[in-house]
Design a protein around this nucleic acid. Structure first.
Length: 452
DNA sequence: TTTTGAGTTGTTCGA
DNA sequence: GTCGAACAACTCAAA
């Protein structure tokens, strides 16, 4: 029994962590490691960088200050740490993104040259991508049959807590300074906060999740997406708790976990779908581009489209690095179907600012809205921002919270400021006419279909 | 083997 | 004001 390295990536927790158990079982002393990889870290926006750093600090605390942090290329850093620690094994949870798969293969190869083995135990998913397949062995392309097969496949029980471990004492690189957040407030990071949030949600909002999840003016959603992104808790933990909570809300919440797994599965089978439309027909639709569209994009990104519900969502994103799911659909639909811009531009903006930014969920969500994905929304389904605003934020509270210029407009009238007798100082008029742009979108879809 | 019906998240139009 | 139909085309499962 020698030493092993536990290389954390997006599993920043101690509970229900099979890779940690594997590392502990195979060695007397475990060296916990996190590599701050510039390829990933530098493309994250300040909110996500800050959230990650806070989560790492929480993990370091939980490990009694034994988390070794290294900056740089993972191949070089992991090999160096393993050799210096005298470890003969490195343990990880498998990654399924394109970059992660390549990175891990490269690390594995480099370690092997020094006789060190890389062990993959578990993944960020209840069921690893690629496992759920149709009877003929091909992957599912439609969510509902996938979800049935996923349930049937089932998942393991949560892993035990680790035994009392001896952690190696090694000095790593200093934590980088937190980026300037410019007034942004982040949710509390770390495993303990995530478990507390889940317990609170399960006891208060879960039972009515099926209806309240569409109400951004209420605390109807779990807000666990950043915790799931960084593995501060594992979906298996949630599923185990859900098993003895029977309500329509619990059922719908389990389905949402399944969506996360479905999109990871789709990406696993179609690595290009991260940035390319899956459907060649709708993917071939004409989009506007070039510098002359920058003003429209900026208005969208900064929450100045003149459509209050859209602007509220976009400003929530900029203010807290997170956006309510319903607002993600409304704002995405606006970019794609009212401004006719490429979904990739919106997906990139979201990934940059969202602290839960995950390529599989984010980009396939965008493809769903754009109608270009597997199992996507029908092309004629165009969100009407005014109608959606009145429906999901009936009293206008959500809009007034995030768009201060409209704070004094009472009730649902806040969704149609252009109808007010007096224009609201500082708030823009609608930058496009929704009805006209909807028709334009339908025209472009017709054209794309005709071409194929 | 073939057929049939259903499929996350919506909107508009006309009766 | 309410309600059902129409808005495609394809995947999948069950009959």
């Amino acid at each position: 029994m020698g030493k092993s390295v536990l290389w954390f990536r997006r599993d920043l927790r101690l509970a229900d962590n099979p890779a940690l158990l594997a590392a502990a079982e195979s060695a007397r002393v475990v060296q916990p490691l996190f590599v701050l990889d510039p390829t990933l870290y530098d493309q994250a926006g300040p909110p996500r960088q800050a959230y990650l750093l806070r989560s790492l600090r929480a993990l370091d605390d939980a490990l009694g200050g034994h988390l070794l942090l290294r900056h740089g290329d993972p191949v070089r850093q992991v090999v160096e740490v393993a050799k210096r620690a005298g470890a003969d094994q490195v343990h990880i949870a498998a990654d399924y993104g394109r970059y992660g798969v390549r990175r891990d293969a490269a690390v594995e190869k480099a370690l092997a040259e020094d006789g060190i083995t890389l062990h993959r135990t578990g993944s960020p998913y209840a069921v690893a991508p690629g496992r759920v397949r149709k009877p003929d062995g091909t992957p599912y392309r439609v969510f509902t049959p996938f979800s049935r097969a996923w349930q049937e496949h089932g998942w393991r029980r949560p892993a035990d807590l680790p035994p009392d471990l001896e952690y190696a004492r090694t000095k790593g690189d200093p934590f980088p300074d937190e980026p300037d957040l410019d007034g942004l407030t982040l949710p509390e990071a770390g495993e303990r906060a995530a478990l507390a949030r889940w317990a609170d949600f399960a006891d208060t909002a879960l039972a009515s999740y099926d209806t309240d999840r569409d109400r951004p003016d209420r605390p109807g959603t779990s807000r666990l997406s950043p915790a799931l992104k960084y593995g501060e808790l594992h979906p298996r933990t949630l599923l185990a708790d859900l098993a003895h909570r029977r309500s329509r809300g619990a059922e719908v919440f389990r389905n949402e976990i399944c969506w996360r797994e479905f999109y990871a599965d789709v990406l696993h089978h179609n690595p290009a779908s991260a940035w390319e439309s899956l459907d060649p027909v709708t993917g071939g639709i004409e989009v506007d581009g070039g510098p002359e569209t920058d003003d429209a994009f900026d208005a969208w990104a900064n929450g100045r489209t003149g459509y209050p519900i859209v602007d509220a969502g976009m400003r929530q994103l900029l203010s807290v690095g997170w956006m309510h799911n319903r607002l993600r659909m409304i704002t995405a639909s606006f970019l794609v179907k009212d401004l006719h811009l490429a979904w990739q531009r919106g997906a990139e903006h979201f990934l940059h600012y969202l602290i839960d930014g995950d390529v599989a969920s984010n980009n396939h969500g965008w493809q769903w809205t754009a109608g270009t994905g597997t199992d996507a929304a029908p092309y004629f389904r165009v969100f009407n921002p005014t109608l959606q605003g009145k429906k999901v934020d009936p009293d206008g509270e959500y809009v007034r919270r995030w768009v201060p210029e409209l704070r004094d407009v009472p009730g649902p009238a806040v969704h149609e400021p252009w109808k007010l007798r007096q224009p609201v100082p500082g708030y823009p008029a609608p930058i496009v006419d929704h009805d006209a742009e909807r028709k334009e979108t339908l025209r472009r879809y017709e054209k794309a279909r005709g071409r194929s």
